[in-house]
Design a protein around this nucleic acid. Structure first.
Length: 314
DNA sequence: GTTAGGG
DNA sequence: CCCTAAC
């Protein structure tokens, strides 16, 4: 969504502006890649560490196997590498809101180890591969290419967005002991299917809880998340959890604004209970203290503007 | 759909 | 985290 990443620009011809006034540049902002779905399988008694290694191994094996990028326009894979963007229909003056980039295995790798898919693993593939894959592209610049994305000017705090802090959390939404959710070895399910489109749009099986009622798995907030939360609250103040969510957790699907509100609640709580934190984990106050221009922490910002923002209402 | 709080 | 009353 708000990935401030770069606007990668592609030229339809040469890098230089040739004399041809028609040689416009197409600006694309790649937010995510679609990657092949991965399945892993590891015994329940395996350690988290081994699980991480397994995932890493699979990722590495895929990487080593060679990856190639695929381009999907309107869902159709464009294979002709010699075709120009314009010929392919990727022009600066066209709506390019449906371009996808995919990561495809150059060659199929044999399953790292005996591939044994237990029963049915329910985990969010999306989250697992967050960091190195899953990127969707959007064409935010419908017009000229005046390099200057101020699209995020509204969110100065973005610098601390979790985009950077969020390291592979590998949330494995498992239905506890019920639906059997064990992880085992990972295996790149390289879709043997003839074509590329095969691993195109990764089907993010988000709703694993077909039968509502399943409690979400507990995902302790990481330091990074706490920092992001604190930072966002610093800017927006309390009482605007929706805004906080979009500001600093827009990309973290599993954190709802209610979660953030709850987390803040506990942070404040713990902070007030042990004013003298034990060296180790900074409480919200410590992070807020630096510039408590306001009333320390908890600055309920009533429906209006963020604190500090001279809100003058005519 | 959001907030705010208790559970 | 969940559940909900109260916007």
């Amino acid at each position: 969504m708000l990935t401030e990443a770069s606007g990668t620009s592609f030229a339809t011809g040469g890098q230089n502006k040739s004399c041809e006034s028609e040689n416009y540049h197409v600006k694309l902002r790649i937010k995510s890649f679609n990657i092949p779905e991965l399945f892993i399988k590891v015994p329940e008694n395996a350690t988290i560490g081994s699980l991480k290694r397994t995932v890493m191994d699979v990722v590495n094996s895929i990487m080593e196997g060679g990856l190639r990028v695929g381009v999907l326009l309107q869902g159709k894979d464009i294979q002709d590498d010699n075709k120009t963007l314009r010929q392919a229909g990727i022009c600066h003056d066209k709506k390019l809101n449906n371009i996808d980039f995919t990561l495809q295995c150059e060659r199929e790798r044999e399953s790292p180890s005996g591939v044994i898919i237990p029963e049915q693993m329910d985990f969010l593939t999306a989250d697992m591969v967050e960091p190195l894959a899953r990127m969707k592209c959007e064409e935010p610049f419908p017009e000229a290419d005046v390099g200057d994305d101020n699209q995020q000017s509204k969110a100065p705090y973005r610098s601390r967005s979790l985009s950077d802090l969020y390291s592979v959390h590998c949330p494995v939404e498992m239905a506890s002991q019920d639906t059997s959710a064990s992880s085992q070895a990972i295996i790149p399910v390289s879709p043997a299917p003839s074509d590329i489109g095969a691993l195109a749009i990764v089907p993010l099986c988000k709703s694993k809880r077909s039968e509502i009622g399943q409690r979400r798995i507990r995902r302790p907030f990481t330091v990074g998340e706490v920092e992001a939360l604190v930072g966002a609250v610093e800017q927006l103040g309390t009482g605007r959890w929706r805004a906080v969510k979009t500001l600093a957790f827009d990309n973290i699907e599993h954190r709802t604004y209610v979660d953030l509100k709850d987390k803040w609640k506990t942070l404040v709580h713990t902070a007030s209970i042990s004013p003298q934190q034990r060296r180790g984990q900074p409480g919200p106050q410590e992070l807020l203290d630096p510039c408590p221009r306001s009333a320390g922490l908890l600055v309920p910002t009533p429906p209006g503007q963020a604190p500090g923002q001279g809100s003058s209402s005519p």
